[in-house]
Design a protein around this nucleic acid. Structure first.
Lengths: 133, 133
DNA sequence: ACGTTATATACCTTGACAGGTATATTCTCG
DNA sequence: CGAGAATATACCTGTCAAGGTATATAACGT
């Protein structure tokens, strides 16, 4: 029975609601297992198991503090997710632009009160940083 | 037998690799089921089932073209995901900044060649749009 | 050294999901 | 109308993940 090391993808890891809760908790500060257990009202083994998954996928790191383990966030996997989103961001900005052009045309042909129409914003966020992974 | 409408979370939907592949395919243009089937080399029922999940979760919409159904992307669920990422982005930008400050201090105390050190960038992207969702 | 606290792991059970095959449905065209 | 194309659905099955209980491991304080 050859053991295949199960490398869970970023997506599978964050598919689990409790794991997302843990991540959201850690975004403000590091926490011990017991603290997570209490704040999220999960059983201790459950917390430990989710932390293991998160750790093996690189979402969190831990340091030892006597009997406690302090877990803290590691951004890389979520940055990967962010990178994955890039093409879709381009997609939806393109669509917002199209909609705006459409509204602009409507406005031109239908000269109504001509009140508030938000100004177009610059070259659509996610500037040249991010995305390059 | 009361049917509970299973509303899959954005995260569960994109946890499936084939579904992500479909989304990536649709980002460039709309496609029929048959086209997706061929391009991704999946069975037709598999494609239909994934499309059903994607449709019910709002990731895609379809229009009828004779016997075909053309599926196209709908950005909202992915925008939700983008919004979920916001706090974590703040987290990792903060850390990049901390790292830079650290490096700056190192540089000060160790006056070496003093060559290229990138300038700090402004208030960390994802300007006041997005996120408010 | 001992009891206690904190965390990890083993084992088991249950439920969900993804894929396959077969079939239903719907449209087109001759 | 009938054959065939395109898509959806039903049913079945294997796999796997998540949670629970019990237990192991390790470090603390006395």
């Amino acid at each position: 029975m050859v053991y295949i090391r199960k490398v869970e993808s970023v997506f599978e890891v964050i598919a689990e609601p409790n794991r997302r809760a843990i991540l959201s908790l850690l975004v403000s500060s590091q926490q011990s297992v017991g603290e997570i257990e209490r704040e999220l009202r999960m059983s201790q083994p459950a917390v430990s198991k989710h932390l293991r998954v998160l750790r093996e996928a690189g979402f969190v790191e831990s340091t030892v503090d006597a009997q406690r383990r302090l877990y803290r966030l590691n951004p890389e996997p979520l940055q990967e997710l962010d990178a994955w989103l890039a093409p879709f961001r381009r997609f939806w900005s393109a669509h917002v632009d199209a909609l705006e052009r459409h509204l602009d045309r409507l406005e031109q042909t239908t000269p109504t009160k001509r009140k508030t129409r938000k100004r177009r914003r610059g070259p659509n966020r996610e500037g040249k940083n991010g995305e390059t992974k």
